[in-house]
Simulated assay, not measured.
Amino acid sequence: MPTIQIAEQAGVGSNGDPRPTEDHVLTLDDAVLLLDGATAPSPEQPPGGWYAGLLGKQLADELGARPDDDLGAVLARAIAEVAKTHDLRPGSSPSSTVAMLRWNAERVDALVLADSPIVAFGRSGHEVLADGRIAALRAAGKLYTGADVRARRNAADGFWVAEADPAAAGEALRRSWPRDEIETVLLASDGVAVAVDDYGLFDWHDVRALARAQGLHAVLEAVRVAERGDPHGARWPRAKRHDDQALVLVEFAN
Score class of each variant (00 low, 15 high):
Met1Asn: 07
Thr3Val: 15
Gln5Tyr: 13
Gln5Asp: 12
Glu8Arg: 11
Ser14Gln: 10
Arg19Pro: 00
Pro20Cys: 12
Asp23Pro: 01
His24Asn: 07
Leu28His: 08
Ala31Glu: 00
Ala31Asn: 02
Leu34Arg: 02
Gly37Lys: 04
Ala40Lys: 13
Ala40Gln: 09
Leu54Asp: 02
Gln58Ala: 12
Asp61Gly: 01
Asp61Cys: 04
Asp61Arg: 14
Leu63Arg: 11
Gly64Lys: 07
Ala65Tyr: 09
Asp68Phe: 09
Asp69Tyr: 13
Gly72Met: 02
Gly72Asp: 06
Gly72Ile: 05
Arg77Asp: 06
Ile79Lys: 03
Lys84Pro: 00
His86Leu: 01
Arg89Asp: 09
Gly91Gln: 03
Ser92Asp: 12
Ser92Arg: 15
Ser93Gly: 11
Ser95Met: 04
Ala99Glu: 08
Ala99Asn: 06
Met100His: 13
Met100Cys: 09
Arg102Asp: 03
Ala105Asn: 11
Ala105Tyr: 08
Glu106Phe: 09
Ser116Lys: 07
Phe121Pro: 01
Arg123Asp: 09
Gly125Asn: 05
Gly132Glu: 11
Gly132Ala: 13
Arg133Thr: 15
Ile134Leu: 15
Ile134Glu: 15
Arg138Tyr: 05
Ala140Leu: 10
Thr145Phe: 06
Gly146Thr: 05
Arg150Val: 10
Arg150Met: 14
Arg153Ala: 10
Asn154Tyr: 13
Ala156Leu: 14
Gly158His: 13
Phe159Asn: 12
Ala162Trp: 09
Glu163Ala: 07
Glu163Ile: 06
Glu163His: 11
Ala168Gln: 13
Gly170Ile: 08
Glu171Thr: 14
Glu171Trp: 14
Leu173Phe: 10
Arg174Gly: 08
Arg175Ala: 15
Trp177Ser: 03
Trp177Glu: 02
Trp177Tyr: 14
Arg179Ala: 11
Asp180Arg: 15
Asp180Ser: 15
Ser189Leu: 06
Asp190Leu: 03
Val192Ala: 00
Asp198Val: 12
Gly200Lys: 07
Phe202Thr: 08
Trp204Asp: 05
Arg208Ile: 13
Leu210Asp: 03
Gln214Pro: 00
His217Lys: 06
Val219Phe: 06
Val219Cys: 02
Leu220Asp: 10
Arg224Phe: 00
Val225Ala: 04
Gly229Lys: 08
Asp230Met: 01
Arg238Ser: 01
Ala239Gly: 05
Lys240Gln: 02
His242Arg: 03
Gln245Pro: 00
Glu251Tyr: 08
Ala253Asn: 15
